[in-house]
Design a protein around this nucleic acid. Structure first.
Lengths: 341, 341
DNA sequence: TTGTACGCGTTATCAT
DNA sequence: ATGATAACGCGTACAA
């Protein structure tokens, strides 16, 4: 469709303008050292020959790729997609380009992808996937920052899940419940989500609230989760009949499943059920009733990660020692329709 | 954390092994021309010096970046996120790496991003964003394939929206409705979604079905859409009281909004309401009642796009003339709970 | 089978 | 202010 001539290079411009390649390079990188007059000549030549820059050659010459690698577990999950969205949107402010891989939590793949990324001289790596362990990551010779995952040996940014859980539980307390319930998987301290449970527990204990902690395998896939939550619902109906139940569910997807089960059973959400989710993901707005939830500042996470990684990239360039940074982004309470005064 | 020596290059390996750089290069690119004995020597040297390949240097030498650029409108929308997911997952089979930009449908940005991508010698470009027009795209000197958008002057792959609409309408016909309703925006033939409307219309007309076509602005943002669908619902209640209504909504997000309005009104979905969505997006499964919908084969779209672009990249390398390809991926009907026998 | 020499397109250093 | 020349790391004729 187009004429596929060879690419126009500095040599061609130099020949055309009777300058040297060096001057052409300076036109781009140190324009202040080129006469206005000559600038115009070069400008015309660029137009006439239809020059397009070759950043790869630039990279080979000066070492700066402006590439950042990203490894995401999975883009089907809205949370990760939104996170990726916010990260790559920073191109307009920071100028870094992103090479993206999806790992499906396959550890072998993750290591392979990191190697591939390193071969392209990425300047930094943002790890959202859960593997490999940060101890392994710390051995790579470039800055790495993780988001919302284990991050002992490298920099990381997470939502302050603990204060989010406090917010959720306080809200349930403010509207007076008879029993406080928390549903989550069994997690360890390494997992940032563990602090959702910890926050709930602390809030209950310091305020002497009666609570019911449901820490168990919540299943994979919709059918399985649905079955588990149905039996959880039957438990609540049986154990807390007539009592006002304040339920803090680990995330919005799960909160939505529980909400649907209750709503289908009653044709509405009874006033003695109060549900709070976590994430403020799109399902919390699209649900049969908009779900009260904890808003994660995903843009804040993305920008935080970028600021840290850029700081470390700069430091690396100047051969400075890099101190790792751990940042917590504060979440906020979004009161909607699944909690009643 | 690591010792930041200069990178190990072929020169270093050559020096270490007393071979020439050429032999080292051959070890990687034409191993059959190197003695097994010498292979082992080189192998050891690679280990000893901890060599890591530099693909950018390789690219400059042989021109193949194995980069494909992608411009997505927006990753917050599940459909695009899933599409991107399926595309970048093809790395394992095709080996292409992906540079991803998000345009937010900003035309100026889109052109800027394309330039940036071209500067990195991408071998092909996958356009999911709606701009620029394919006539503009066709002037770029690399293969371009679009997905689910206008694609007159470049290759493209779309779901067969027409047959999807036929499927949806036939299903509504099979379960016998008194009035057939279709809700969509006003679209032109350039827009692939137009054929959802066309399919509905054709099916109604060839079968002499009584229909009500609702082509109008459906609003932006949740609140606006909700208001519009509420008034649509009131229309249906008034006009078709007691009649069995078969409603084919343009996509699952919209179908879910309508479903929620009806379900909240009645506490359940009355049997005289039959709703079919489109896309088989996650919301169709997470809704208060799983939504009957048309399944888009997103993986098929992704693989189709990759196969086309690879074919064109190969052709370009051999200076062959590239014929544009237009591929239609067939959707399927997913019967769930919003349509009743 | 292996080595020499040059090219890929740009930047950096040192002159002038 | 401008130019000559040597890098950057690898691939590939061509020669041996």
């Amino acid at each position: 469709m187009e004429n596929k001539k060879k690419k126009v290079t500095f040599s061609d411009i130099a020949e055309y303008t009777h300058f040297s390649k060096t001057t052409i390079s300076r036109y781009f990188n140190h324009p202040e050292t080129v006469t206005d007059e000559n600038k115009k000549i070069i400008e015309e030549a660029l137009q006439a020959l239809d020059y397009h820059e070759n950043k790869l050659a630039k990279v080979l010459a000066n070492g700066k790729t402006e590439f950042i690698g990203i490894i995401v577990p999975n883009l089907s999950m809205h949370y990760y997609a939104e996170l990726l969205s916010q990260i790559i949107s920073t191109y307009d402010t920071f100028g870094y380009k992103f090479l993206v891989f999806e790992s499906q939590n396959d550890q072998a793949k993750e290591l392979q992808y990191i190697d591939e990324l390193m071969a392209y001289n990425i300047e930094g790596l943002i790890m959202i996937s859960h593997f490999p362990h940060s101890e392994v990551l710390s051995h790579y010779p470039i800055p790495i920052v993780t988001i919302e995952r284990e991050s002992q040996y490298v920099s990381g940014v997470t939502t302050n899940n603990y204060s989010g859980a406090l917010l959720a539980t306080k809200h349930l307390m403010d509207i007076n419940n008879d029993i406080y319930i928390h549903i989550n998987s069994k997690l360890t301290e390494n997992n940032p989500d563990y602090y959702r449970t910890k926050g709930f527990l602390d809030q209950c204990q310091t305020n002497n609230l009666p609570y019911d902690l449901r820490l168990q395998d919540l299943g994979n896939g919709f059918e399985e989760m649905n079955a588990i939550y149905t039996s959880l619902f039957e438990d609540f109906e049986r154990l807390y009949k007539g009592k006002r139940k304040g339920i803090f569910v680990c995330n919005d997807t799960h909160a939505n499943i529980l909400l649907n089960i209750i709503y289908r059973h009653y044709g509405h959400l009874p006033h003695d059920y109060n549900i709070v989710g976590f994430d403020d993901s799109s399902i919390s707005r699209e649900a049969i009733i908009p779900i009260t939830t904890i808003h994660q500042d995903i843009k804040g996470l993305a920008i935080g990660a970028m600021e840290i990684i850029i700081k470390e990239i700069e430091a690396t360039k100047q051969n400075k020692v890099v101190q790792h940074t751990y940042q917590r982004v504060e979440p906020t309470l979004m009161i909607r329709k699944t909690t009643h005064q």
